[in-house]
Design a binder for these strands. Structure first.
Length: 259
DNA sequence: GATGACCTGTGA
DNA sequence: TCACAGGTCATC
């Protein structure tokens, strides 16, 4: 599942392989995939004959800068993948097939040098837009400071996990990373965010950093230590894990050490 | 703040 | 055959 680690890997592929290549044509086979009023014509106008000069990211949103100052926003949804010149970028996704089905190409570009870029997304939950509004996103999880975490959690009575996944408060954490970080920090995901004290927030901040660093090194959001199965015990203390819904999402946690 | 809808491949 | 996965948005 593309959470911030997979999106960062995809961004790096764009940065390494899609910049400074003049665009010959734009491929928009799926109008459902064009978000917030974006049209095929507007994409042609914005991209034809131009080239990308930078690939940035905020949370799970990729922002690709065009040489005339325009910005192309790319979102991978939950099964999206970036393909440049035929190679699938990023780590294999647990829940999504990596077959090179042309029918899953929801958006694409042909470069003048005859190379191609595609956004391949079987489940069509990703999207493309022009001039995305970055202000809808909170601070990026990969560079999250302790002060930013405190600000995100302050005065929120929602479950701490729901706040971690709220992209307007912290950008980049999804279901798997939030579960892993809370498990590492020893915090019950359903606790109101406002009830998480300063010591616990410090532990949570360290846990977010270690989760991103460790899972990033291992290869993605799905490489965490917390099993996403009730058949396995908590690796930390051997207790039986629980599966509940928190913030509307399936949540695995350990009732013995997460409090 | 919580819930359901969107979408479709996967596996029980 | 059908529940489930889950990022995001609309709606309650």
């Amino acid at each position: 599942v593309p959470e911030i680690l997979e999106v960062e890997a995809a961004r790096q592929v764009l940065e390494a392989r899609a910049l400074h290549r003049p665009i010959d044509s734009v491929f928009t086979p799926d109008t459902w995939f064009l978000k917030r009023g974006t049209t095929a014509e507007a994409l042609r106008d914005a991209l034809d004959g131009r080239q990308f000069v930078a690939a940035r990211r905020r949370g799970k949103l990729m922002l690709v800068d065009v040489d005339d100052g325009g910005v192309l926003g790319l979102h991978l949804g939950m099964s999206g993948r970036v393909v440049v010149d035929g190679d699938a970028a990023g780590d294999p996704l647990v829940y999504a097939s990596n077959r090179p089905e042309a029918a899953w190409h929801r958006f694409g570009l042909a470069f003048v040098d005859s190379g191609q870029f595609f956004l391949r997304d079987p489940r069509r939950l990703g999207g493309v837009e022009l001039e995305p509004d970055e202000s809808r996103l909170g601070p990026d999880a990969l560079s999250l400071t302790r002060a930013q975490l405190d600000r995100a959690l302050a005065a929120r009575r929602a479950p701490v996990k729901a706040v971690l996944m709220d992209q307007a408060r912290i950008a980049g954490l999804g279901n798997l990373l939030a579960d892993e970080a809370l498990w590492r920090a020893g915090i019950d995901p359903a606790r109101p965010a406002v009830a998480v004290d300063a010591n616990e927030r410090a532990a949570l901040h360290r846990a977010i950093r270690s989760t991103l660093r460790t899972l990033g090194r291992r290869g993605g959001s799905h490489t965490g230590d917390l099993p996403r199965s009730l058949d396995e015990p908590c690796p930390r203390d051997g207790a039986a894990l629980r599966r509940t819904k928190v913030g509307g999402r399936t949540t695995y946690w350990c009732p013995a050490h997460q409090r």
